[in-house]
Design a protein around this nucleic acid. Sequence first.
DNA 1: GTCTATAAATTGATAGAC
DNA 2: GTCTATCAATTTATAGAC
Lengths: 179, 179
Amino acid sequence: MAREFLARGYDATTMEHLAAAAGMTKSSIYHHVSSKEQLLQLAVSRALDALFAVLEEPPSTQGPAVDRLQHVVRRSAEVLDAQLPYVSLLLRIRGNTPVEREALDRRREFDARLSALVQSAIDQGGIRADLDPRLVTRLLFGMVNSVAEWYRPGGSTAAAEIADAVVTLALDGLRRTSD
Amino acid sequence: MAREFLARGYDATTMEHLAAAAGMTKSSIYHHVSSKEQLLQLAVSRALDALFAVLEEPPSTQGPAVDRLQHVVRRSAEVLDAQLPYVSLLLRIRGNTPVEREALDRRREFDARLSALVQSAIDQGGIRADLDPRLVTRLLFGMVNSVAEWYRPGGSTAAAEIADAVVTLALDGLRRTSD
DNA sequence: GTCTATAAATTGATAGAC
DNA sequence: GTCTATCAATTTATAGAC
């Protein structure tokens, strides 16, 4: 279901598309859900729940902020892998309807939590202080989220490799490492 | 026009929306263009032309690959600033129609050029060699492109500051710089 | 070039049988 | 729970006057 939205985008996916993919007719779908928008609601809630859960994991709540940040970055990439269609849907929301706007509100709350984490890491001297924390947060998780644009589970690139690359690139950069 | 698409997304923007924004009626628009999809065509072509132009600028074609890469990253961020609605539209294309698929083809060609540049930088020892070049390219320009999700010209963050932050973060990373 | 219709197709959703 | 209609609204696009 969310796979159909992933392929074409929410607006371009019709109930007819969903019905064909589910092997039933349009009207049968309405026996299970009340509207197309409710499907969107369910999907983005699933994504948001998974993302917020990362913030509650012990490694995200204990220890130096840099380590916690690193853990959140890595786990966010893994959530993207495990919940790809749902997270993609969330990332593409524009706020066109009440349901979308509520999802955007929750997402902004999540982003604020990330931003606070980056700020803590700076305050503790764990990461460089010469860049705007808000900007760093956006670029860092923009990089993580961009994975949703091309990653497909089961492809040639494993989720763990991606998570490692993101963390390495974000923390140490591309510059030739010593030598 | 492309601003309307930027706000709601292409599919969710109706000819009525465009007409209201342009201060005329729906039918008047059809005096200037032949279809809604032609508007998309014009917009994404503009974005692609601007991006490909960056690759032809002398600093992109001369000198060490790292420097050329750095220039392309910085200029791509600037194109995003100057052509935000058009580039956003391009980035959101899913390939639902022939026009969209053609745009995706051109974009893939652009991505291949970027990937070749990253490969050169690795070959010349300008950037670390322990990460997959294809993956690095995707993450690097995923970070650049993610700026389209939140950046609005005239806001508090200047285009130059963003371009600097992207280059710094990508090349040197977040880790506390010496000391 | 812009307007008022209006056509033609698509699409989200419902009614009611089985 | 799934089906066959079918509705009602939306929306892209056209016709033709001014």
